[in-house]
Design a protein around this nucleic acid. Structure first.
Lengths: 157, 157
DNA sequence: GTCATTTCTTGATTTACATCAATGCATAGC
DNA sequence: GCTATGCATTGATGTAAATCAAGAAATGAC
């Protein structure tokens, strides 16, 4: 488990890499994302303080996700093997599954506005720290659509 | 860890239940799903042989998912506490995370046709066993949309 | 400071999919 | 057997969000 500094913009892992690294964020902000065949970027996860960021690819298979730093970030790096040996943090693992479950349900049942409202409620601190286009990418909508949703919501107040 | 038989149509768990049960499918087919505020059903997971089906809700918080049997099914039931004590199957847990990761990426980047093609490639045996409307529900599209996709694909051949 | 690049917004248009409605086909119950 | 219920398909219409395009505003480089 090695502590390292990552500069804003630095890429830790690329899609296709064979990597079994796990990043635990101490401070700063990471993100993991894919780029699809049409060249569109989709953010899979924001990794703020205390989050664990990793691709779930099996050992020796190519990763699906890019991981980079949105802010200057301090992380602890471990290999999956190390983490498995020490006995992984089950609570964290289950919380992660819970996050993913919520995300899937949200993606299947919510429209743009509902997704945005859910996001600002669940991650109130993230929205201040990233450009809106990244929020849109996380929500699975376009920046234009997000702009209109936000506009509509501010009208109402 | 108790082995029980479940009849087709039987409901094992309802949304809102406080339950920490985990179902490991020995034979047959379970499904977990939610019903949103608009009354629409969204299938979260199909659980065929050897799959683990459970809600990831924390202990003593209400579940989000319904779980029922699509076929007559034999399952092993454990509580989360039991499973944690015995040391859970980490490989299974990671595979599950991988499945969820793929699902999220698919939901964000694929249209109806791509989702369907991905589904029949990934779960070739499921499609024979469930009504198409459940496949549609899993894919996050309507039965009508699925019907049109399938129609279009069969034209091409 | 200026200039360049990226981000955000606004409007017009298009498109994929949902919704609504009707009909055909099964399967199950009696 | 017949009737009822659920499932699948097809067509017509509606709609949320994508796409395309152009400016405005913010950010960063020098």
């Amino acid at each position: 488990m090695k502590k390292i500094n990552v500069n804003k913009g630095e890429i830790l892992q690329r899609k296709g890499d064979i990597s079994s690294k796990i990043y635990i964020v101490e401070s700063g902000l990471l993100r993991s994302y894919t780029i699809d065949e049409k060249g569109k970027e989709h953010i899979y996860l924001f990794g703020p303080e205390n989050w664990l960021v990793a691709d779930n690819c099996e050992s020796n298979t190519p990763c699906q996700l890019f991981i980079d730093a949105i802010e200057d970030t301090i992380i602890n790096v471990a290999t999956k093997e190390e983490l498995l040996k020490e006995g992984p943090d089950l609570t964290a693992l289950l919380r992660r599954l819970d996050t993913m479950q919520n995300r899937i349900i949200m993606l299947m049942s919510s429209n743009a506005k509902e997704r945005y409202l859910h996001f600002i409620k669940t991650y109130p601190n993230i929205i201040q720290r990233v450009p809106l286009k990244m929020v849109a990418s996380y929500l699975g909508i376009t920046p234009e659509a997000l702009s209109r949703v936000r506009n509509e919501l501010s009208q109402k107040k």
